[in-house]
Design a protein around this nucleic acid. Sequence first.
DNA 1: CGACGATACGGAACACTGTTCCGTTTTGGC
DNA 2: GCCAAAACGGAACAGTGTTCCGTATCGTCG
Lengths: 196, 196
Amino acid sequence: MKQSDEGAGPAAPSRRKDARRNKETLLEAAAAVFVTSGVDAPVRDVASRAGVGLGTLYRHFPTRADLIIAVYRHQVEACAEAGPALLATAATPHSALRQWIDLFVDFLVTKHGLAAVLRSDQAGFGALHDYFLDRLLPVCAELLDSAVTAGEIRADIDALTLMRGVGNLCIGAESDPDYDARRLAGVLVDGLRRPD
Amino acid sequence: MKQSDEGAGPAAPSRRKDARRNKETLLEAAAAVFVTSGVDAPVRDVASRAGVGLGTLYRHFPTRADLIIAVYRHQVEACAEAGPALLATAATPHSALRQWIDLFVDFLVTKHGLAAVLRSDQAGFGALHDYFLDRLLPVCAELLDSAVTAGEIRADIDALTLMRGVGNLCIGAESDPDYDARRLAGVLVDGLRRPD
DNA sequence: CGACGATACGGAACACTGTTCCGTTTTGGC
DNA sequence: GCCAAAACGGAACAGTGTTCCGTATCGTCG
């Protein structure tokens, strides 16, 4: 309902060897191109780097967002799993929240243009936005709730607003050494503390 | 050196009546189109709404950024002038800073897509970015310095980082009622307070 | 081993941008 | 009224994402 391969299982790999190989090649090419040219790199660059035609790329990844999701899925999963872990090990819920936000910011800041495209309303990027939210919002909400329940922070900021805010703070951070998104995110999380 | 009409005086208006009229018409058309379709609206929409050709538009506003700057110049000026005024009337420098940030956020949030394009690295938008910074950064720096000097806030966030952060927080705020950029900016400014 | 249908491939073609260019039209001074 | 300078209009160019379909390849089945 949300995406092609989310509705009915893990999307059985093709029976054809060339198809499987091309998909793998495309993922590697995309990862390489994203590192050097950012996630906004022309689709043609990815296809040609992989040595395949545009049609092939689009069959495997119907939209640009699907390609980006596939490339970064592992890291998003890792970030999602880190939430509960931090909650268990950190001194306080607020500390866990702060550390988790740091993780999230580091992830975004090291992917050229990801934060920007994450927020984009451009057609076709909705899937990307949705994926991140589906996967990470519950994690953020749990951390936030814990901190609120512990009385450490104010209760008038919801998880969605916080995540979008932090994501927005990361936009452009990778291309400007004078802009310190990490510190800014830290200030934001500081600002959540109960005004008292 | 920076822009067409900034280097050598206020850019003498054309001696031809049709040229002056078209420029005015274009500004009105642009303002109208920006309100309904955002500042990302196709240039063609502005030209056709104004009833002129593309060539005419581009002669008056060599780049899209010039058009946007011209449309919002008044409001940017007003925001810039509000800085010293707030510093003089507010109870504390931090309060003045907060109120000024509120003004800035309100301005950005009410202009569809302005915050996004302000931050954009797209070719041709540098002028827009530079204009905002030239005009508002000194104002922000003064407010920030006053608050730091008064010992109200931490000193490790510079004006550029703060402005870009606040600008980023506003991205997408106009198209999502669940995202409260104003409140988030308030939290950020709260977070600037000396941790003590 | 040799068809043969399903599957996947490649890249030309399309739609939609911003921007440039230049032949044509309009204007204002003489 | 004439004419050079200025401005106009929109076709044409360049760079995107995306679609489409004729062709090539693969895996199976006889």
